[in-house]
């Protein structure tokens, strides 16, 4: 009896670390850290066959046209363009033009941030650009033969331009604006303050069928 009491009953645990290492390496190798990021978009609803499509009677000056053909050549406002990163500033300039001199526009300008107001008063108010942010429409048209990379690149710039306008207005960066949590009342308030009076009017037209 005395003998058995003295016997050690430890389980050898020297290999524990090795086993854990093995598992660790397995999970290290199989892990793909989820990268579900991208450009969100809401598609327009399916047109109702019983309802006639409305006649669009918008002034040319209120439409900012971006066309891409099947060989990926870009036409912005009927001028060829090579560098798509320029589209961002052009869109911002177009949306914040306030060509119309009415009271509504004046109120909207007063609600902008200081830097934006200076920008509008110094460079905006051109008669040949958009009347107000509410009227401004960015029209983006591609061909079926346009490559997806170009399409996404331009969409990125257009969306980025709007996000920067909204962000600037409430003193955030474009990224901070995008990451606002709309379920939180305080952040939702900031969000609607940024969006108010400046709708994101981006029209993505049905592509032409030349490049197929």
């Amino acid at each position: 009896m005395a003998k058995s009491k003295n016997r050690k009953v430890d389980i050898p645990s020297a290999s524990l670390a090795d086993i854990a290492f093995l598992l660790l390496i397995f999970f290290l190798v199989t892990t793909t850290i989820a990268s579900d990021k991208g450009i969100a978009l809401l598609l327009p609803p399916k047109p109702d066959p019983n309802v006639e499509p409305p006649d669009i009677t918008k002034n040319q000056r209120n439409i900012f046209k971006v066309n891409v053909n099947s060989s990926d050549r870009i036409l912005v406002e009927d001028e060829p363009l090579q560098d798509i990163s320029k589209i961002r500033d052009m869109v911002k300039e177009f949306v914040l033009n306030f060509g119309d001199q009415n009271q509504e526009n004046q109120d909207l300008i007063n609600s902008l941030s200081g830097a934006q107001r200076n920008f509008v008063l110094s460079q905006g108010r051109k008669p040949d650009s958009s009347d107000s942010p509410g009227d401004a429409v960015v029209s983006f048209k591609t061909d079926r033969g346009t490559s997806y990379e170009i399409y996404l690149g331009i969409l990125d710039e257009i969306m980025g331009a709007y996000d920067e306008i909204y962000g600037d207005r409430v003193g955030l960066t474009a990224e901070e604006f995008r990451n606002l949590d709309k379920s939180d009342p305080a952040q939702n308030d900031v969000y609607s303050r940024a969006r108010e009076g400046i709708p994101r009017n981006v029209s993505i037209a049905e592509p032409t069928k030349i490049g197929e």
């Binding site: 990021k37 991208g38 997806y148 399409y151």
Partner: peptide, 25 residues
Amino acid sequence: VKMGIVVDVQQELKEVNARKILYSA
């Protein structure tokens, strides 16, 4: 990929009213 096939997919999504999309990037 060319836009043609992407647009075809979007057209189908509109038909079933799954309008929220995300272009992964």
